[in-house]
Write a protein that binds this DNA or RNA. Structure first.
Lengths: 154, 154
DNA sequence: TACATTAGTCAACTATGGTTTACTAAAAAT
DNA sequence: ATTTTTAGTAAACCATAGTTGACTAATGTA
């Protein structure tokens, strides 16, 4: 394999490009979120918890189960986010052992601001691609996510 | 913001979906590469070096500069990959301080096998999307990469 | 020729994001 | 009622991926 083939192959792999763009966006997303929340201590690991917390509140154990990590590690991250005033806790009325985790929806560090940060990146994409192209790309990429989440081997 | 809005917004963000699919593919890519090379010790950090090594050979310092990390850390990873027989070193005839890093192109652990591993993931995508759709997706995603690499701020 | 810079390495340290072990308290099962 | 399981936490530990500082040897420059 010659150099030119190598370079060609790298650019020609959709997988490769998807990994790359995912990382680039993630980098920006973290920066944007830190900025939105005015919290430089916000780390990747904190953001990674977001998708597993429902608006109706989710217990620490449930978040851990969904994410596939120990509840100890989730517990620590949640406490830090409570300190940062991004989340708050409420006793589960059904089970007094359990603590439900919620997003703060008022105050300076609401989840809405986090979304605005993410959306500013989408804004950039829309500006470059146009609304129509953005929408069709979204559909396509969502299909990819579907494929990789449903496929178990290969 | 209600739950339904939240879920809708998450699914509707191209950024979010791109981050997600990138991670899912990366996960599979690492598994596939470990398998291709029959080297369970192969780590993410090793794979991350690949894009910075040319077929004509690249010095440790140059790889470090390209990747934006210290040459000490690159040096260590390169040594490990030499042990794994993925790379080999050759003295630079122009500068006897410098060591050029090359991909092994013969033996059991060639870069070709690494590509086959990555390509098997692309195969999966082609099977699900069809050739035409794959190609148009590739073009689109490559545009995204371009956007995020060229844009410096928002 | 002497001095500064660069390539590479080693060892010690650091940050991150976990896990494992050990514990308390509440709930569920027998 | 006793035992077992579950929720949460704290502390110690671990792997990964990097940094910084100190050094050698080769190169480049005044």
């Amino acid at each position: 394999m010659k150099k030119s083939d190598f370079e060609k192959q790298k650019g020609a792999s959709l997988s490769h490009q998807l990994i790359k763009v995912g990382r680039l966006i993630n980098e920006r997303g973290l920066a944007a979120a830190r900025n939105a929340f005015h919290i430089p201590e916000l780390k990747q690991s904190h953001l990674d918890l977001f998708p597993y917390i429902d608006f109706e509140g989710t217990s620490v154990s449930e978040v851990a189960k969904r994410k596939g990590v120990s509840k100890q590690s989730v517990s620590k991250l949640v406490q830090e986010m409570v300190h940062m005033k991004i989340l708050f806790l409420k006793k589960d009325p059904e089970d007094s052992r359990s603590k439900l985790v919620f997003f703060k929806t008022s105050g300076p560090f609401t989840i809405q601001k986090g979304f605005e940060a993410l959306m500013s990146i989408d804004r950039l994409l829309i500006d470059h691609l146009g609304e129509k192209s953005y929408t069709s790309a979204l559909k396509k990429v969502s299909d990819f996510v579907e494929i990789f989440q449903s496929e178990n081997q290969n």
